[in-house]
Amino acid sequence: MARTAVIPRPKLAVEYWLLTYRRNWKGSILTSFLSPVLFLAAMGLGLGSLVDAEVGSGRDLGGLDYLDFLAPGLLAGNAMMLAVNESTYPVLGGFKWYRTYVAMASSPLRGRDILLGHFTYMAFRVTLASFVFLGVMAAFGAVSSPLAVLAPICAALCGMAFATPTAAFVATRINADNFSTYTRFVVMPMFLFSGIFYPVSQLPIVLEQIAWLTPVWHGVRLCRALSTGSGMEWELIGHLAYLVALILIGTLIASRTFTRRLYE
């Protein structure tokens, strides 16, 4: 009986995910690099030249070139997309296909260690991809403030505000039937209508008010303010608080749904 009890820590679960990441980090970095290059070239430069010629750097875009307006928005939107990917199939797989969580559950790790381990890894992935994105933005000349180095952190928060409730929901699913519906009818509309491509003030007032409730709108506002260095200090804190609150709520619910599924 001289053995001391193991102190379970989410860190121990993170190590698993980092070990799998070591196997595919090259492909993952390449994707993180190519996606912003394609988007910024096609929409920022291609569409942007048209927008700038027609609209000019008008007050609707807050006096910004279209590329400067779009790039930080895409940074947040890209983080959201990546986080949704990471919190749907890999989470169901942990319960069902690869049974990674099931293996962890038979060890001293608890439900919350297992999910915090995976969430930490997701945050790491999204943060890394967002820094790569920022690098591409800089190469396109779409960064105008040193504060922009903080934008990837905010983008990651925006991503995790999606990932945590999504994972909580996925833990209650038997199969992946609803995932494409979720991506098509929840995530995609947010990507299109939350101020990434144009200010939400262009929308009918009802849609604009809905957009204010979406985490991605808050993420977009944060990233844009940091990337362009254009004011709105108090608003920034509100956006941050909103995202952090969503992450906390998502994590609390996930802690319940994970524990129920693993230790029924």
């Binding site: 193991v6 102190i7 379970p8 121990l12 679960a13 190590e15 698993y16 070990l19």
Partner: peptide
Amino acid sequence: LYVYGRYFD
């Protein structure tokens, strides 16, 4: 084996 052993710290 390594990763499972790490779950036990």
